[in-house]
Computed example of a mutant assay.
Amino acid sequence: MKEQFNTALGNLVDKLIGWFNTIIENIPNFILAILVMIASYFAAKYVGRLVKRLVSRRIHQDSIKNAISRVVAVVVVALGLFIALGVLNLGKALTSLLAGAGVVGLAIGLALQGTLANTFAGLILSFRKKIQIGNWVETTGYSGEVMDINLKDFTLKEADNNIVIIPNKTILENPIKNYSLTTKMRIFLECGVGYESDLEKVQQLTKEVIATTFDQVKSVDDVEFYFTEFGDSSINYLCRFWIDAESMLEKMKAKTTAIIEIKKAYDKEGINIPFPIRTLQFDNSLDIKGNSKAQSTTQNEK
């Protein structure tokens, strides 16, 4: 029993001595690994700030800039960790760490599939020059001013001051109309005049009103005017002209101004804008005769 105890104690001492020798031999590597981690930490902070400055030239959203700088900082720290493990000759630990990170990353990706999709969509939208904060856009049935683009959603403010929050993935997968990309918009104005109207006079008067009302319309020739159909109660026409505008609100205001001025001109010249009229005709003579005959028949029977 005593010999077994001495043997076990000797083995333990040999193990401890071996570990101590290994620690002594690897002290330089351990110190170097610590220095690598410290250097990677400060390098991550510096690179993160540098990336944030570079990204600020293209992106104005603070949430997007902070997210990109943090991701870059995490990547730099991860590289420093892998280098430190390599310095310590922990190749097996490094392989196990990479394998575990892959499995965990796959599980997180499956669990947060929708969130990650919105995050990457937000990053893509932030780098798109054709979609900027302040633009007036129309997408997925909503129209308004772009208020914010973050890592989760796309925020619009509609003309009635309502806020619409749309997931970034939906914006990226659907068509989007950006009114702010062009400095001009076309106004379409439809109306009708009475059949008794002088059509040539209506055409000339309408074009003159548009040309004098809007500074963007240089001459009468810039206004398009077409009669479209013989309607039920009026002869209908389509008038088109261009204005300088970048939002739907400006377009609606211009159309309102055009309607007011055209109505004033028509009233002054006596041009009628008719509305549908339905005439009901009742043949009372038949009813009266029918009623009188029925009454006389009833009296005779009595």
Results as ranks from 00 to 15, higher is better:
residue 59 I to Q: 13
residue 125 L to H: 08
residue 180 S to M: 07
residue 106 L to W: 02
residue 232 D to V: 11
residue 109 G to R: 07
residue 276 P to Q: 07
residue 148 D to K: 13
residue 193 V to P: 09
residue 16 L to D: 01
residue 225 F to M: 14
residue 276 P to K: 14
residue 16 L to W: 01
residue 41 Y to V: 09
residue 126 S to C: 11
residue 80 G to P: 03
residue 118 N to F: 03
residue 167 P to D: 07
residue 197 S to G: 10
residue 74 V to T: 06
residue 70 R to L: 11
residue 268 K to I: 06
residue 143 S to P: 04
residue 15 K to S: 14
residue 79 L to Y: 09
residue 252 M to Q: 07
residue 141 G to Y: 05
residue 233 S to L: 04
residue 190 E to A: 14
residue 293 K to L: 12
residue 81 L to Q: 03
residue 271 I to Y: 00
residue 130 K to I: 05
residue 2 K to I: 03
residue 142 Y to A: 11
residue 179 Y to G: 09
residue 236 N to F: 01
residue 239 C to V: 06
residue 171 I to E: 04
residue 43 A to S: 08
residue 53 R to M: 02
residue 220 V to L: 12
residue 117 A to P: 02
residue 86 G to A: 07
residue 26 N to C: 06
residue 64 I to H: 04
residue 132 Q to V: 09
residue 187 I to Y: 09
residue 131 I to Y: 07
residue 80 G to S: 09
residue 254 A to K: 01
residue 78 A to R: 00
residue 291 N to I: 06
residue 242 W to L: 09
residue 158 E to V: 02
residue 70 R to G: 12
residue 99 A to L: 11
residue 66 N to E: 10
residue 146 V to Y: 10
residue 144 G to W: 00
residue 91 G to K: 01
residue 300 N to H: 05
residue 276 P to D: 06
residue 166 I to D: 03
residue 288 I to T: 12
residue 142 Y to D: 08
residue 294 A to D: 02
residue 177 K to S: 14
residue 302 K to N: 11
residue 258 A to M: 06
residue 203 Q to C: 14
residue 93 A to K: 01
residue 211 A to P: 05
residue 266 Y to V: 00
residue 133 I to P: 13
residue 297 T to F: 08
residue 134 G to H: 05
residue 100 G to Y: 04
residue 75 V to W: 10
residue 126 S to N: 11
residue 107 A to K: 05
residue 133 I to N: 11
residue 275 F to A: 13
residue 238 L to F: 04
residue 158 E to W: 03
residue 137 V to F: 04
residue 130 K to G: 13
residue 48 G to C: 09
residue 210 I to E: 09
residue 125 L to M: 12
residue 11 N to D: 11
residue 27 I to N: 00
residue 186 R to P: 10
residue 68 I to T: 13
residue 224 E to A: 15
residue 30 F to Y: 03
residue 211 A to G: 12
residue 235 I to E: 01
residue 48 G to H: 02
residue 66 N to D: 15
residue 242 W to G: 06
residue 2 K to D: 14
residue 135 N to D: 08
residue 38 I to D: 06
residue 227 F to W: 01
residue 32 L to Q: 08
residue 224 E to H: 13
residue 289 K to A: 14
residue 94 L to A: 09
residue 105 G to L: 00
residue 33 A to F: 08
